[in-house]
């Protein structure tokens, strides 16, 4: 049975991707909110925000990418929830297939869909004047961080997808994730924030991740930020994966 893990995964991935290609609104909706925020902050608030860099869009884009990921993974929870509700998950579970491939197919789908949304957001950023002289290696590093963050947050999304009792519940968990970048260095530098807020902002994962991406794109030395960012991503990934798997086993056995 284990020899079929890859084929089963591929078949189920093909199914989920077909869902997305038949309702591309999931990718559009995922990109619309971050793009709207980007427009709002660049063209309305941006002029009044002093970031010490040239071009606010250059400062803002990394945070917008994090928000894109957070809104993209909400759909993973939603799709998984619908599979649970419709009974098709039971059908897959009762077939002689690798059981883990049912979850992995959803996770891989999330990676593909979120990547497309991220590309759309970056393209809009370019239209709005985002520029970076970063080389291939720096871009690869940025892609790596975004990939790892998407993977980690997708496994977080699997948990409500498996346990929610309503559609709203399945996606509600992503609201705090979308809000978290506001209390970080994503929109404004943390220097002007009052004491406790600043402490929170500087020590939560979004700041490390956003700073690392921003420095990579601006060809600045990334310092320790990138390691803190990676530790956060891997930490979230491991914890979320374990919790999701335990939840899955309990739900299905």
């Amino acid at each position: 049975m284990t020899t079929h893990v890859l084929t089963d995964n591929a078949v189920l991935l093909g199914r989920s991707l077909r869902h997305i290609s038949r309702s591309p609104d999931t990718i559009i909706t995922t990109a619309v909110t971050p793009i709207a925020m980007m427009l709002l902050f660049v063209y309305v608030f941006g002029g009044a925000i002093s970031t010490g860099t040239d071009g606010y869009v250059n400062y803002l884009l990394p945070g917008i990418l994090v928000i894109t990921i957070a809104s993209g993974i909400a759909y993973t929870a939603y799709r998984l929830f619908l599979d649970m509700q419709s009974g098709i998950l039971d059908r897959f579970q009762s077939m002689p297939i690798a059981r883990s491939s049912v979850l992995w197919a959803h996770v891989l789908t999330s990676l593909v869909a979120t990547t497309v949304s991220l590309v759309v957001v970056v393209l809009v950023g370019l239209l709005m004047g985002f520029r970076s002289g970063a080389g291939v290696l720096a871009w690869l590093a940025v892609a790596g961080i975004l990939f790892l963050l998407t993977l980690a947050l997708t496994w977080v999304a699997v948990i409500p997808g498996l346990t929610a009792t309503s559609v709203d519940g399945a996606s509600a968990f992503s609201y705090p994730l979308i809000f978290l970048p506001f209390i970080s260095s994503a929109f404004v530098p943390t220097d002007t924030m009052p004491g406790p807020v600043r402490v929170f902002a500087e020590n939560q994962p979004v700041t490390a991740i956003v700073d690392a991406i921003r420095d990579l794109l601006a060809q600045q030395p990334v310092g320790t930020d990138i390691w803190i960012a990676l530790v956060w991503c891997v930490g979230i990934l491991v914890v979320a994966y374990l919790v999701a798997m335990v939840t899955y086993r309990r739900k299905t056995a």
Binding site: H19, S23, S86, G87, S94
Partner: peptide, 12 residues
């Protein structure tokens, strides 16, 4: 093979 209580088919 299981045919569950609700038709477990993929609507999309």
């Amino acid at each position: 093979s299981l045919t569950g209580q609700f038709a477990a088919v993929d609507e999309v």
